[in-house]
């Protein structure tokens, strides 16, 4: 290979790449938090006694889990304004990733909920808790611990999906990497550094999740 490595151009703009990574993390955290709320509500909806509620939740999951996220991002940003819904690029991406992660997390939470012994809920009820408080104090905390490993996987995957925000010019890491690439033609260096930054960020997230898992583990 006849290629002279020169990282200088990339280092010069490293702070921009870092800020892009930072924005990606913020987008992921906000979207996953909203996605968790959507996922929790829909997971309970999927186990509802009412057929219409179960049906609505199933439709939601089917639609958003079976559409590529890139298509969702483009649809939200370019097509929704035609319906009078105008969102800035960052807001638009947050909405998309929240809705999309909600669909995935619904399945994670649902599988966690069905794995719980039914007696757990009943025990909460017999000490005088309402259904809602039983969920908050008992069902959700126990379920959450059970699904934490699966949740971690999803978190990392969703964080990586923030790179797709580049297609609507959200200034995150991939967006800046592409910009530096175009301006400097340092193709290998730019994408190598960007890749490494994703790997390091994801490894840190994984380590934090593992620590959380251990800290919350139920003693046996």
């Amino acid at each position: 290979m006849d290629y002279d490595f020169n990282f200088a151009a990339v280092w010069r703009d490293f702070d921009i790449l870092l800020s892009g990574l930072g924005l990606g993390l913020v987008l992921a955290v906000i979207s996953i938090a909203i996605g968790c709320l959507i996922g929790l509500c829909l997971a309970f909806a999927m186990l509802s006694k009412k057929r219409s509620i179960r049906w609505a939740a199933t439709v939601y999951v089917s639609v958003f889990r079976n559409t590529p996220i890139l298509v969702l991002i483009l649809f939200t940003f370019f097509a929704l304004p035609e319906f009078g819904i105008n969102l800035g690029k960052i807001e638009s991406f947050i909405v998309t990733l929240s809705v999309y992660s909600g669909a995935y997390l619904t399945e994670v939470f649902r599988s966690g909920l069905v794995s719980l012994p039914p007696g757990l809920r009943e025990a909460g009820l017999t000490v005088g808790l309402t259904e809602f408080r039983t969920k908050i104090l008992i069902t959700i905390p126990v379920m959450f611990r059970r699904v934490l490993p699966a949740l971690g996987n999803n978190f990392i995957s969703l964080f990586k999906d923030t790179s797709l925000a580049a297609v609507i010019a959200v200034p995150e890491l991939t967006f800046y990497a592409r910009k530096i690439n175009v301006e400097t033609f340092r193709v290998i260096e730019t994408w190598l550094v960007a890749s490494l930054m994703y790997v390091i960020a994801c490894s840190i997230i994984a380590a934090i999740l593992r620590r959380t898992e251990n800290r919350l583990a139920i003693p046996k």
């Binding site: 012994p117 007696g119 757990l120 009943e122 025990a123 909460g124 009820l125 017999t126 000490v127 005088g128 808790l129 309402t130 104090l137 008992i138 905390p141 126990v142 611990r145 139920i218």
Partner: peptide
């Protein structure tokens, strides 16, 4: 919920809250 708390129940499979220590199980209600 109020009426349920008039009675107490012990189950075949105990159904303790697994994420709480014994004393917190008793304290919760």
């Amino acid at each position: 919920a109020r009426q349920r708390a008039m009675t107490g129940m012990a189950f075949q499979h105990f159904n303790l809250f697994p994420h709480m220590s014994a004393i917190h199980n008793v304290m919760l209600g």
